[in-house]
Design a protein around this nucleic acid. Structure first.
Lengths: 336, 336
DNA sequence: TATTTTTGAGAAACCCTTTTCTCAACGTCG
DNA sequence: CGACGTTGAGAAAAGGGTTTCTCAAAAATA
């Protein structure tokens, strides 16, 4: 009945005792459930506030069978894409009172299993898997868990709920921007063909050119590495022949940086002679080029936020349409 | 006494029933506490394994008053330094069965408070604060919490336990490397003086030069921005006068990149004519320069790991020496 | 053989909150 | 004035473990 609380932490027993009611009544007052007079409710709330009562989430989770906690699995420890996604997830979920367990698993299946088991033991309500590439899965199978799973920026089973940037739409916006600027001889300098995003952006490039009635040969798509050096080399190659392009759509910002530098070395004016558009909006690169780089932003933070909210909906028993959610990219127009 | 378990999850009641013992005995068998015959203990364990029993960490934490969970607060959502630190923390703690709550707080004090309160409600055993600069604190005061706090790569109260890279030692190794390569006219091209790391690396540069008996004027330290462009400009400035340096220690890898590019434009050979050393070991930059960049690695992952382990010690009631722990940097020798 | 000690295991309390059920008091209606 | 619906609040169980205490049986000692 009455308990003596020796620890410093204020419990609902303390609140109930101070307000002269039972813990049942106190709980109902604080959660705005049950029936009681308005005065009682207010009094309990006031007492709770004065005592600085904060419910123990562990005990609450135990009865509610909801921990308001989710797990976030990532295989990326160095990349620049994961951090904004994770930040978006964290931000989007804290609004719902949900906390996020961070689990860095590298490419280690054993480590991944340890993390997943630990999360499950801690009764997470759901799991978000995220990574560095949309065409490589995490080193653990999450498809038969007892909790819902959402994927963001990583490879996933077909029937899963997955969020990725809309590379096609982003590429299309980039090319449309070049065309709108009056460019007609446009090439695409991009990364290794083994990346899915390279395929997507390249085919969107080709399609957009065609629908604009512009010629697009296979030679207009140059695959290399994700490096400034490759941007340099590609420009060398292009300008060693005749027929120079007047617009260049680059597969990422680093390549674009190399392209712009190479053009300047050749005293070709950007954007007067040639327009350049990048991809990623990696501000540390895009804002430092001369002129500043026009590029495509993938809205990764928003992507993370949406992934988090989708998971909350699943946890609440609502349905979320399965499959690939492609979130729009946004063209950031700067000076190039 | 006997309970019927309708949910799919296996509880200790199920184990106890299947083994024909009480939950008290089952608990003791599984935790290797209490007294019982070896046969009983083995039998209970075997049954638990067969049933796939995994204890509910929530229930366990409630009685043990240890949640095996810590909070990780960061104000960095884009930087490249935080992710390895976080990964190190996560890795170092999972070995102790500890999970990590990720909280991205930007520079928002209200958001930070929400996160801290949520963590405390969830009974975290401790908190790690991490950020992007060692001279800027997080937007929340963590100094009077009921749980221990450890700081990593962020500004902290003097009496706190804090982990940062040893910038002085790193700078010293860089300069020593240049001296060992026979360089005598060495300059330091670095970032804005408002950064503490700039001060530290610069003064270590000066001291190392002096102890080697080499002249070091104030003009040998050039402060600018953390950009390739500044590396370019600095080289322009240096080579516009007489008396060119034969060794350059750069404040970060981007500056070094700019320096190397500018030198190549002037057909100055690296490392034949001039040796260049960077700082950060940002592989995406350092491995792409021509030649690949010799640079200082801050061992951020290890730093995170140590911060996590220090927190575990504090949580266990062990003492950890207060103050600034400066963890050694490591020179990565490549081609420059 | 009688007494003490050790051993093995279970009953019950506890951790903190939520939730269902019960119940007295009160007001309303016929 | 008796039957009945409301209202306000509490008792108790539940959630899944851990831990302290108790106690009978077995073993050791006298």
């Amino acid at each position: 009945m009455s308990r003596i609380n020796l620890s410093e932490r204020v419990t609902i027993y303390d609140v109930a005792a101070a307000a002269g009611v039972s813990t049942a009544t106190a709980s109902k007052a604080l959660n705005d459930t049950g029936r009681m007079s308005a005065e009682t409710r207010d009094r309990i709330r006031r007492v709770a506030r004065e005592l600085g009562f904060r419910p123990n989430a562990l005990a609450r989770s135990l009865t509610r069978k909801r921990s308001f906690t989710v797990g976030l699995l990532t295989d990326d420890t160095y990349g620049r894409f994961t951090l904004p996604v994770m930040a978006g997830i964290s931000e989007g979920l804290i609004d719902h009172g949900v906390s996020v367990f961070l689990c860095a698993v590298e490419d280690n299946p054993a480590l991944a299993k340890v993390h997943v088991d630990a999360m499950l033991d801690k009764q997470v309500d759901g799991i978000i898997a995220t990574g560095k590439r949309i065409d490589k899965p995490l080193p653990v199978d999450l498809s038969h868990l007892s909790v819902p799973v959402v994927y963001a920026l990583t490879a996933a089973p077909l029937e899963a709920v997955t969020f990725v940037p809309d590379d096609r739409q982003g590429a299309q916006e980039a090319v449309d921007h070049l065309i709108a600027a009056g460019r007609t001889k446009i090439v695409h300098i991009t990364g290794p063909g083994s990346f899915r995003v390279v395929q997507e952006r390249a085919s969107a490039f080709a399609e957009t050119m065609q629908s604009a009635g512009l010629p697009v040969s296979q030679a207009a798509i140059l695959q290399g590495t994700w490096s400034e050096r490759w941007g340099h080399e590609a420009v060398e190659a292009l300008w060693s022949g005749e027929n120079h392009p007047d617009g260049i759509f680059c597969g990422n910002d680093q390549i674009a940086r190399g392209v712009i530098d190479a053009l300047r070395e050749r005293t070709i004016e950007v954007p007067t002679d040639v327009s350049v558009v990048g991809f990623d909006n990696w501000e540390i690169v895009a804002e430092q080029t001369r002129p500043p780089l026009t590029t495509v932003d993938m809205n990764l933070k928003e992507l993370g936020r949406q992934a988090g909210q989708a998971l909350v909906r699943l946890v609440n028993g609502e349905t979320v349409e399965q499959g690939l959610w492609k979130l729009p990219c946004m063209l950031v127009v700067r000076g190039s």
